[in-house]
Design a protein around this nucleic acid. Sequence first.
DNA 1: AATATTCCCGTTTTT
DNA 2: CGGGAATATT
Length: 729
Amino acid sequence: MQKRSDSAIDQLFADLSDPQREAVAHTDGPLLILAGPGSGKTRVITRRAAHLACTVTEPRHILAITFTNKAAKEMRERIDALSVGEGMTVGTFHALCAKLLRRHHERAGVPMNFTIFDRDDRRNVIKTALERCNLSADNLSPASVDQEIGRAKNAMFSAAQYAARNLDWRERMIARVYECYERLLAEMGGLDFDDLLMRTALTLSRDDELRAELENRYRYVLIDEYQDTNAAQYQIARLLTQEHLNLCATGDPDQSIYGWRGADIGNILSFERDYAGAKVVRLEQNYRSTKRILLAADALIAGNVMRKEKRLWTQNDEGPAVRVLECEDGDDEAGQIAEEIADRIREGVAPGDIAVFYRVNSLSRVIEEAFLRHGLAYQIARGVEFYNRKEIKDVLAYLRVLVNPSDEVSLVRIINTPPRGIGATTNERLRDRAAARGVRIFDLLLDDEAILSLGRGGQKVREFGGLLRQLAPALELPPGQALETVISHSGLRALYHETREADDAPSANLDELISAASDFQQDQPEATVIDWLEHSALVSDVDAVRGDGGAVTLMTLHSAKGLEFAHVYLIGLEDGLLPFRRAEQSWNSNGGDDEEERRLCFVGMTRAKKSLTLSRARYRMLRGVTQRTTRSPFLDELRDAGLEWPESEKATKGRSTIVQPSMGHPPIDLAEWTIGTLVRHPQQGLGRILSIHRGGRRTHVDVEFENGSRKSWVVEFADLRRVDFDEVG
DNA sequence: AATATTCCCGTTTTT
DNA sequence: CGGGAATATT
C-alpha cells in the first residue's frame, strides 16, 4: 500500500464543512451519514474512500455498493481521479451478487452458467407454473402472482417458508405456484432479480467460511442510498460486516422511494440500534439549490408525519420563485414547457442542464411529441426499454441458450425466430418428448431418434440444432464479435433488415446493441459473453443517460434520484397521479402510501439547482381516456411556500377568464364531426378523422393526413374544415 | 404455417 | 393508448 504524504491527505479535507470533515476522517466502526439532498454526500464518500485507502487499508479491501450502475461508474471515476490506487470494488447490489454467485457457484448451489431472468422472463415462467398447477388465470393473474412472489423473496421467504405461514385461500394457491415457479426456474438454470439478493444472503448466512473470507477481503463496506435497502440487502450488509463492523451507510429517510419493492425505511432509522456505538454525521447544508427551491421542498416534506425532523439550509442565492403552471391538458402542458425550454436554450442555457420529470413513463410521450415539434434535442432515460425490444431480446436469447441450454424460455423464443417452419404442433411434441424422457428440449435437438418421431417438423428441428452447434464457438469470442456472429448467422439480420418501417429500425437497434457490447469490452477487455449478458440484464433506465449536455433529459421521478439539473420541470401534479393512487378497488392495500409519494415529489424538487417549475393539466389523458383532474394536494400544501401561481389562481381581478374559443370561426356543430369525416387543414392538407374524444369542454380529434402525419386537434380551436365528398373528386 | 386483423385488458415506480 | 393474445385469412 502506498502511503501518501501528509499534505496529500490534507488535500482530501480541503473545502469541506465540519460535519463533512468528520465523516471523511472516520475510519473504523459503523458510520451513518444522514445526508440531505445536495449536501455533498458523493464528495464525502469518495474522499472518505480515498482517505481509507491512504491511511488504514488498501483499495482492494474497500467495497462500495451503489444504487445504479451509473452511480457506480461515476464513483469509480471520481475515486480514480483522486489517484489513490485501483482495485476498489464498486457496483450495485445486484451486479455484485451476480458476480459473487457466479464465482462461488458451487457453494451457493447455483449453476455456473445461470442466466438472469428479467420481469418478462419471470412472467413467462409464472404462466407456465400456473398451467402446471391447473390454475387458469381467472382469479390469479400472472401479474399478481409475480408481485406476491417478489414480495416474498424480498422478505426472504422461500417457497417452503411462504407455504408454512398462515395462509388464506388465495395465498395457498400462490404458494403452490411459487413452489412450481421455483422448480421451473431451477430446471432452467435461471435466477430472477430477487434471487440474486436472496441467494447471496442465504449463502452468506449458511456458509460461514465463505462469509469470513469475504469479510476479510472487504474490510470497509460502504452502502449508498441505505434508506432503499430491503431485507435481503440488509442481511447481506450485516453478514459482510459482522466482525469488523466497518459499515458506512449513507442515505436520507426523506428520500426513501422504493417501499413498494420491499425497501424498508426502518433499516436506516434503526441503524444506530443495529450497530451499537455507530457514529452519526448529519449533512444538512445544501450546496445545490436556491433558497426558494429548498424552502418549497422543505415545506412539502414537512407534511410527512412519520418523519425524523431535519433542518435543511443553504447559503445559496434566493433565486427566482418556484413556479406553478396550470395547463388545459397534457398537450398544452407539453407545448408550454417545450416553448419555454426552447426560449431558454436560445438564451444560452445548455440543453443538458434541463430536465423534465414525471411520475409515470406514459407522460413522456406528449412531451416527446412537443419537443419534436419544437426541434428540441432530448434524451429519455430508458435503457431497459431498449433491452425489451423484440429484436434485442431475440439476439440475447440466442446467446442465453448458447450459454445455458437449459434456459427454455429463451430456447422457445428462438426456436422459430426467424420463422423456420417449427410451429405450435412441433413445439408441443418436442415438449412432450422431453418431458417423457426427463431431458431438456435442447437435448432432443440433435437426437436423431427423437427427431424422427416429430414427423415433418423433424428436419427443421434438426437444422435448428445444427445452427446452434455452429454458433456455439462464438461464446469464446469477445461479446461484440459474438453478437455479430450470432446476428448474421442466425438469420436475425436478414429477418430485420427488410422491415420497412422508418420510425424505429430494428436493424439499427441491432447495430446499437453491437456497439454497446463493444463499449463494454473496451471498459473490460477480459469480459466474456456471460459477463455481457449479466451486464445487459442488470442495466437500469438511468444508466443510459448521457451527460454530454447536448440534450434535455426526460425521466421518471424514480430515475431522477441522485441526479441534479439546473432547471427542472416536474409535470403532472394531479391528485391520484402525483400522489399516485390506484383506483380503490384493490383489496391488497399495498400501495396508497402518500408519504412515500410525498418523498418522491421531494426528491424531484430537490434535483433542481436554479429553477423549478411544477405543472398540472386540468384534463389528462391516460391509457386512452381523457379525464378531468383535481390539483395535487401537494400543490395545496405549497400554498404558503412562496410559489408563483398563474394569474387565474390569484383573486379575481375583474378580468374575464372566459376563453374566447375559435377566433373568427363559426360555431361548430359537433354532430357533423364523426369518425371518417374528411377535413382540410391549411398546413396539413386533406385528412380523415380517426377518432374523437369528447372531454368536458373540448372535443379532440385525431386526424391522419394525406402526407401520412397524424395529429391531434381541439376541434373548437383548430383551423379544420369539413370537406364534402363531392369536393374531393 | 405464416401473416393480418381484431379485441381485450391493465391500469406506477425498477434491479 | 398500446401490447399481447385470440381469431381470421391466405
